[in-house]
Structures are given as structure tokens and as C-alpha cells.
């Protein structure tokens, strides 16, 4: 049942991402809801679930994008592994910590794409423009991430009560 709920949430987020997030584009940049979800799941899910879900949503995002297959699987998977492996050693709570890690993962995600596209496909970007876009992308993700984290945190106690220790780590 919890997996069905997670699937529905993901379908909802993917639909928003592909259907009308363009409306909220700022300077040609739109936030990456999937990346934010990966950060959230990496931090709050149990280890295997966090990594598994990160790779899965990365793969779905690859299928729903025009970039080469595997770029998002790689970047999201690495983000998931990072948070799943280090969540016992780092504390990601509060606005500052969430903002910092969302910002860093957004930069990382953008860089992975940049490296993959330039090295594998020979795509040519204007470096100054691209890095400015990555920075704006990271800032936009931070703002959206704080909101999304707040919404997801609201539902977390309910999930805990209904499905104790199935997906989320114990609070």
C-alpha cells in the first residue's frame, strides 16, 4: 500500500514537472521536483529504499527527457547513495541544512549533465551562461525544496503511524 502511495505521489510530481512547471520558469530555469524528492528520500527513507527510489526516479526522468539515457539515473542515483550512506553522520534538519544540501545537489546534478553532454555527445554550451543557469537552478531548487520538504514532512507522521518502519526511517 505504501508503495502505491509513493507511486501516486511520484506520478503526480512527474506530471507537474512535465506538464506545467514551465509556467513558473524564472530566467528560463525551472525547478527540478524530482531532484528534491531524491534528496528527501535519501535523507528520510531507509537505506535500500532511498537508493532504490533515487535510481528508479532518475531512470524515469531519463525516459521523460531528451538527454541521453542514464545521465539522470547516474546523478540521482549518486545523490541517493550519498544521502543514504551519510545520513547517520550528517544532520539534515532545519532550513539552513536543507537549503545547503539542496543547493549542493543541484550544482552536482547540473555538472553531471554538463560533463555527460560535452564529453559524450560533444554538445557545445556557452560556459558562462551554463554556469549562471546552474546557479539560478540551484537557488530555485532551494526555494522549491523548502516548500516541498515542508509539505512532505507534514505527511510523514501519518505514514509512520500507518506503515511503521516500512519505508521511512524511525523518527
Amino acid at each position: 500500500m505504501i508503495y502505491l502511495i509513493i507511486s501516486l505521489v511520484l506520478i503526480f510530481l512527474f506530471s507537474i514537472q512535465t506538464a506545467f512547471l514551465e509556467i513558473f520558469s524564472f530566467g528560463g530555469v525551472t525547478p527540478d521536483l524530482i531532484l528534491i524528492i531524491v534528496v528527501y528520500c535519501g535523507i528520510n527513507f531507509t537505506k535500500n529504499n532511498g537508493i532504490g527510489l533515487s535510481v528508479l526516479v532518475g531512470f524515469i526522468q531519463d525516459c521523460l527527457s531528451g538527454s541521453i539515457l542514464g545521465v539522470n539515473t547516474l546523478s540521482k542515483g549518486l545523490v541517493g547513495i550519498f544521502f543514504s550512506a551519510l545520513k547517520d553522520k550528517i544532520i539534515v534538519e532545519g532550513i539552513l541544512a536543507v537549503s545547503f544540501f539542496t543547493f549542493c545537489t543541484s550544482l552536482f546534478d547540473g555538472m553531471i549533465y554538463f560533463i555527460a553532454m560535452t564529453s559524450l555527445l560533444g554538445a557545445q554550451f556557452k560556459a558562462d551562461f551554463f554556469f549562471a543557469q546552474i546557479l539560478l537552478f540551484a537557488v530555485y531548487n532551494v526555494v522549491t525544496g523548502l516548500f516541498l520538504f515542508y509539505i512532505l514532512d507534514l505527511s510523514r507522521p501519518w505514514v509512520h503511524r500507518r506503515f511503521p518502519n516500512q519505508v521511512f526511517q524511525p523518527i
Partner: peptide
């Protein structure tokens, strides 16, 4: 047009 790219970086339509 039923959708757009799921990532920020590539420009694509469904």
C-alpha cells in the same frame, strides 16, 4: 503538445 522535458537542461516536447 502534451508535455515538456522532465529536466531543466534539454529542450524537448511530447
Amino acid at each position: 503538445v502534451i508535455g515538456r522535458d522532465a529536466t531543466q537542461w534539454s529542450k524537448m516536447l511530447f
